[in-house]
């Protein structure tokens, strides 16, 4: 299938598992870097800033910028530092909540 999404897997590997992002079901490769897998699935933005509500997505992919923050199990975590696991329920961090938990 040809896709117009900006991010593409050049050598798709691994079996896919289901997760949700903001209540939407997605199938992502098990064990894949979570930020990368979400980008390929077309997720953007990952969050809105607590200050102005501006949209943001992964910037550094090495755990330094915190622009890839998402919320899992009530905690704000860096998507670029996690791997996809079965059944992850992901949401955008709550604006007005703590961005740095």
């Amino acid at each position: 299938m040809k896709t117009a999404l900006p991010f593409r897997e050049i050598d798709p590997v691994g079996n896919k598992v289901s997760i949700t992002f903001g209540g939407i079901d997605l199938m992502l490769p098990l064990g894949e870097n979570l930020a990368g897998a979400l980008l390929v699935a077309g997720v953007m933005p990952f969050r809105n800033t607590p200050v102005s509500g501006a949209p943001r997505g992964p910037f550094c992919m090495m755990g330094a910028c915190y622009d890839c923050l998402v919320q899992i199990d009530g905690m704000n975590v860096q998507a670029c530092m996690l791997q996809v696991s079965e059944g992850m329920e992901i949401t955008m961090p709550v604006v007005g909540g703590t961005a740095d938990a």
Partner: peptide, 19 residues
């Protein structure tokens, strides 16, 4: 969103085969 460091693009490629 969509602006990244060039190193981030390289990490996507090395780590996940994502272009």
């Amino acid at each position: 969103p969509g602006v990244m460091t060039a190193g981030a693009a390289q990490i996507l490629l090395k780590q996940s085969g994502i272009a």
